[in-house]
Amino acid sequence: MQQFLQQLWNGLAIGSVYALVAVGYTLVFGVLKFINFAHGSVLTVGAYIALYSVLRNWLPFPLAFGLSMSLSGVFSYLTEMYAYRPLREKGAPKLNLLITSIGVSLLVENSIVVFVSPDFHPFPRVLPSAPITMAGMRIPPVDLLLVAVGLVLMCSLSYFVNRTLAGLTIKAVALDRDAAALMGINTSKTISLTFFLAGIMASAAGVLIGMRFSVNPYLGGFFGLKSFAAAVVGGIGSVPGAYLGGYLIGMLETFGAAYISSNYKDAIAFVLLVFVLLYKPSGLLGKGTQEKV
């Protein structure tokens, strides 16, 4: 029982990371109907911004965290502006966007290796490292922060998208871009906003995962891919689906590692992905999509 609770908590922590990143894939897929494979690189950029702000003593940690989130939001917005928008305006097929996004992610990853550092950096200690003991569970403070930040950001995002007019425009553009334009919505602005929000969420995950493990150029590639699996498992295009998929993969992974074998840990997300695609291709909470003629 003790171990079960411990694993449950671990799963919740790592699941928060997947959920935060998965929701970005889902939001962007909603408005543009393509998978932004560069989304993971926003996570890496976010982790590095926070790392260097703290390492060089530029800013205290909370401010560095905030700075990382906003700058990563802007970075995500700029990738859309300079990499995808020109293609969209020329009416390029979706495949070109997809290939471009893979290009962007390679560019970011390798630029970090070349211009910053190829090393794995431990994050400076900003939180006490001694685990907190709670109901027999040993919880590292960073995990506590991860779960809390995850919950706050996810609830805020859901509130924003469902309850504010600016957020509703994201839903409107996702449902029918032309009809949204006919309401007077500047759809390009809405798409920019979507990328910005996706960037904020991913960078929060990036900073926290960097603290939990280490900051390295491949952070985004690794967590990005699993989070993408989470988004598809939950139903791409669905915000609650991304949360569910994220937590589900986080849980299965930690329980799999604890009770089956830790060797299979990284395979579990993709095994689940294969099963979901086989039996419910639209994802757990996704709506069956039909290609419009």
Binding site: L168, K171, A172, L175, D176, D178, A179, A180, A181, L182, M183, G184, I185, N186, T187
Partner: peptide, 28 residues
């Protein structure tokens, strides 16, 4: 002009096939 600028100028288009936002409420 782009569509949102046309709306700003005072022309609104109720498109063919209704194109309501099917997953949102009437109020939204």
């Amino acid at each position: 002009m782009s569509p949102h600028q046309v709306v700003e100028s005072g022309i609104v288009h109720a498109p063919e096939g209704r194109r309501v936002f099917s997953e949102l409420t009437v109020d939204q």
